[in-house]
Amino acid sequence: MVKVDSFSVESWMDRYETKCKYNIAETCCASISIDELRELSEDKNKQVLQTSNALTYGAIRGSDALRSNLARLYSAKSTAAIQPENIISTPGAISANYLAAYALVGPGDHVICHYPTYQSLYDVPKHLGATVDLWHATFENNWLPSISDLEALIKPNTKLIVVNNPNNPTGVVLKRAFLQQIIDVASAHDITILSDEVYRPVFHSITPLDPGFPPSLLSMGYKKTVVTGSMSKAYALAGIRVGWVASQDPEIIEKIAEVRHFTTISVSQLDEQVAAYALDQSTVHRLLARNIQLAKTNVEMLEKWVAKHEDECEWVKPLAGTTAFVKFHREGKAVDSVDFCEQLLEKTGVLFVPGSECFGSEFRGFVRIGFVCQTQVLKEGLVEATKFLRKNLDDVKLAE
């Protein structure tokens, strides 16, 4: 039997997210209803669901409408157009990442994974029998890993390099020139790159006019690239459980399609209809504008809060996505992030995620804050967190 470690961040959320008053741990842009989605659409006559359709398995690789809308979005402002047949829908990005790993690595293979990041990106390859090395980014280097470190990790059996851009939990982005360096390393050794892009395109603190603005890795010309995405984070529709995997390499797509037959067969027709409606040209621009503006408003509020409490915390301000990784300390010593988060929740109802438990024991004092919730929730939650820092920080254990 495969030994599976606890999925720490999901276990934490499962344990506490329904018991908190202020959920500032969630990583989705504040979720919306179908009614709200319909209000965002410029075409009020367009139906979200075709309720007369027979509920068969539907299109096995994903509906034409969904895959065409995704292909259009990936091809916009790119010289590398992607075709709908190069995209496969999945039940969320977590399934897309699993299928990519399942199709591409196995016993005897070696995987390199950008770190810190979402646990499944490095643990699933281990479950499949691969050995995994973590490509560390550090707070001291603004959460950017080193290309020389990446080169040093390469082995003759390295099959996959995994990156998460924008990054969870730090909110940092790997910029265009850096992505090109990763491609140069991978192409020199004929290694496939898997880029988890679920937080794309929530770029709240960097604009497309910035020369370093990162495109999707899918559009950068390296054929052995796989990207994954989701309706959950940037599109505020986690409840429909729709994700996708895309590649310009037909061989990779066929491998993923083959292993997918052993899992879900297809994605719910109803879920795909909602996703296609959200990604339609009549809806998607206003949906993204809503979410990006929410992120801009909230990150500014969080930035002021961190500055106000500079004696107790510090961060690298995120450029994109919905999360920030904030380090709390007392008299220069890192706090025990689990004790901090548990006491904060108990005394105020505010939910954060402890870095040392959910992202790695070395992240002492760090907590992940999911700040693209409803603005009022963030505002009220930060007021309560301020009270906690003033009254209770001295009672929090220090990290050992």
Rank of each mutant, 00 (worst) to 15 (best):
M1R: 05
S6W: 12
S6H: 11
W12L: 02
W12K: 07
M13Y: 02
D14R: 12
Y16L: 07
T18E: 15
C20E: 02
E26P: 03
C29H: 09
S31G: 12
I32G: 05
I34D: 13
E36L: 02
E42I: 12
D43R: 05
N53Q: 15
T56C: 05
A59V: 08
I60T: 11
R61H: 14
D64I: 12
L70G: 00
Y74V: 11
S78F: 00
A81R: 13
Q83T: 14
P84E: 15
S89P: 00
A93W: 11
A93N: 12
L99W: 06
A101I: 14
A103D: 04
A103N: 13
G106E: 01
V111L: 07
V111F: 07
L121I: 04
D123P: 04
V124F: 14
V124Y: 15
H136Y: 15
H136R: 06
E140W: 00
I147Q: 01
A152G: 03
K155E: 13
K155G: 10
K155R: 13
P156M: 07
N157Y: 10
N157K: 11
K159R: 14
L160C: 10
V162Q: 07
N165M: 01
N165L: 10
G171I: 10
V172G: 06
F178S: 03
A188Y: 07
H189S: 08
D190R: 15
D190W: 02
T192K: 04
L194R: 03
D196Y: 12
Y199N: 15
S205H: 11
P214N: 12
S216H: 08
Y235K: 07
L237V: 01
V242Y: 01
A246L: 09
Q248F: 04
D249K: 03
E251W: 03
I253D: 00
E258Q: 14
V259H: 00
R260N: 10
F262S: 08
F262R: 05
Q269F: 00
L270K: 11
D271T: 08
V274A: 04
A275I: 00
Y277I: 07
A278I: 02
Q281H: 08
Q293N: 13
Q293D: 12
L294M: 09
A295I: 10
A295Q: 08
N298Y: 03
N298F: 00
L302D: 05
L302C: 05
L302A: 09
V306I: 10
V306A: 04
A307P: 06
A307Q: 13
E312M: 04
E314V: 12
E314F: 10
W315F: 02
P318S: 09
T323W: 08
V326P: 09
R330W: 03
E331A: 14
A334M: 02
S337T: 04
S337R: 04
V338S: 06
D339L: 01
F340R: 12
L344T: 05
G349W: 00
G355D: 01
S356Y: 00
S361F: 08
R364T: 15
F366S: 02
R368I: 13
Q376K: 15
G381K: 03
K391W: 11
N392F: 11
D394M: 08
K397H: 14
A399P: 07
E400G: 09
E400C: 09
E400A: 10
